[in-house]
C-alpha cells in the first residue's frame, strides 16, 4: 500500500504547466528507462498473450473461426482429462516447488560461506548441468527408473525388495516424476541465491556476530529475510515452471499410464497442436493462468515487497 500512496502523490500534482514539468522531471526518466523493454515486451509477449485470451472465446477453424462466448470454458471444465490433469499438476506443484526452493536455499547457504575457490567450484558444478537440455536429463532418468537395468531398482534390490515398475504403475508414476524433480539439484535457484547473498552488506553479519548471535540465528533472522525478494522470484518462477511441466512428461510417460501423469500443458499441447483446437487450448491456458495468478497474488501478499519494507524499517530504527 505504501508504494501506491507515493505513486498517487506523483500522479496527483498535474495542475499547472510548471508542475507538469516538475512531475515529468520526477517520473519521466522512469518511463524512458522502461520504454525499450516495454516496446519489445508489448509486441512479442503482450500481443500473443492477448491473442490467446481473445481466441479462448472462439471456435478455431483454419479458414473460419467464430465467436462462441464461454463455451470453450464450460467444455474445458466438463472434460475429465483436463480437470484430472489440473489436479495432477496441482499435486506436482505443491510437492516439488517448496522442496526445490528449500534445497536451493540450503545448498546456497552452505556454499556461500566457503572460500572463493570452493564457492566457484560448487556454483559451477550445480549450475552447469542446467545447460544440458531436459531431453538428455530425461534420458538419464529413464535409465535410473528402468525396470531391469535401472539404478533405483538396483538400490531396491540391495535391500532385498522386489523391483518396482516406477513409471508403469498407476499410483506411483506421478510420484516418480516428483522424485525426479526433487532429486535434480535446482541449479538456477542456487545460482540466484548465491548472487543475492553476494550483494548483502557483510557488515550486517558482523554486527550480529558482535551482538553474540549464533550462526543459525544470523541465518534465520538476517540472511533469510533479506533473501525474501529472491525467494519470491524463485517461488513464482518455480511455480510457473511446475504448473507448466511438459518436456518431462513427453519424455518420461507421455501422460500415462492411463491419465495418471497427464498435466495441463501436455493436454493444452495436444488440444492445440494435435487436434488443431486452438480456441479450446487457449481457454485451457487461460484457466491455468487464472489459477497461477491467484496463487501468485496470494504469495505476493505473504512474501512480497511489503515484507521487505517492514523488515528494513525495523532494522533502521
Amino acid at each position: 500500500m505504501k508504494t501506491e500512496m507515493t505513486a498517487q502523490e506523483a500522479g496527483g500534482r498535474i495542475s499547472s504547466p510548471a508542475s507538469w514539468l516538475k512531475t515529468w522531471k520526477k517520473i519521466g526518466p522512469a518511463y524512458l528507462f522502461l520504454l525499450p523493454k516495454l516496446l519489445l515486451f508489448g509486441l512479442f509477449t503482450v500481443l500473443p498473450v492477448g491473442w490467446t485470451f481473445l481466441l479462448s472465446f472462439q471456435e478455431y477453424e483454419i479458414f473460419d473461426s467464430h465467436w462462441i462466448g464461454l463455451r470453450n470454458y464450460a467444455e474445458a471444465f466438463r472434460n475429465e482429462i483436463f480437470t484430472g490433469a489440473l489436479w495432477n499438476t496441482f499435486r506436482y506443484t505443491i510437492v516439488t516447488v517448496p522442496l526445490s526452493i528449500l534445497t536451493a536455499l540450503i545448498i546456497a547457504s552452505l556454499v556461500f560461506p566457503l572460500g572463493h575457490r570452493s564457492q566457484t567450484f560448487f556454483r559451477a558444478s550445480f549450475y552447469l548441468p542446467v545447460v544440458t537440455s531436459t531431453v538428455i536429463v530425461a534420458m538419464v532418468w529413464r535409465w535410473i527408473f528402468n525396470y531391469r537395468f535401472g539404478l533405483l531398482n538396483h538400490v531396491v534390490g540391495i535391500f532385498g525388495m522386489q523391483p518396482v515398475d516406477w513409471l508403469g504403475q498407476t499410483d506411483l508414476a506421478l510420484w516418480s516424476l516428483m522424485l525426479m524433480n526433487v532429486l535434480i539439484p535446482p541449479g538456477s535457484g542456487i545460482l540466484l541465491y548465491l548472487a543475492a547473498m553476494g550483494s548483502v552488506n557483510p557488515s550486517l553479519f558482523e554486527a550480529a556476530r558482535i551482538d553474540g548471535a549464533s550462526a543459525f540465528q544470523i541465518w534465520r533472522k538476517i540472511t533469510v529475510p533479506l533473501l525474501k525478494p529472491t525467494t519470491f522470484y524463485l517461488l513464482i518462477l518455480s511455480m510457473i515452471g511446475a504448473f507448466q511441466v511438459f518436456t518431462e512428461i513427453v519424455m518420461m510417460t507421455g501422460g500415462g499410464p492411463g491419465n495418471a501423469t497427464e498435466t495441463v500443458v501436455h493436454v493444452i499441447y495436444k488440444t492445440g497442436f494435435r487436434d488443431f483446437e486452438y480456441g479450446m487450448a487457449s481457454a485451457q491456458s487461460v484457466i491455468l493462468f487464472i489459477i497461477i495468478m491467484f496463487i501468485a497474488v496470494f504469495q505476493y501478499k505473504m512474501l512480497g515487497d511489503e515484507g521487505v519494507e517492514r523488515h528494513k524499517k525495523r532494522r533502521n530504527k
Binding site: T3, A10, G11, I27, F33, F41, W51, S282, A296
Partner: peptide, 29 residues
C-alpha cells in the same frame, strides 16, 4: 526504485504474461 503511475500495473502485467504457456503463444508470435 521509482514511483510513477502504472508501476504496479506493469509489474503485474509482466508476471501475468509468464503464466500463459509458450505452446499457445507460438501461433500469434
Amino acid at each position: 526504485k521509482k514511483q510513477f503511475p502504472g508501476r504496479m500495473l506493469v509489474f503485474w502485467l509482466i508476471i501475468a504474461t509468464m503464466m500463459i504457456p509458450d505452446q499457445v503463444t507460438l501461433v500469434p508470435s
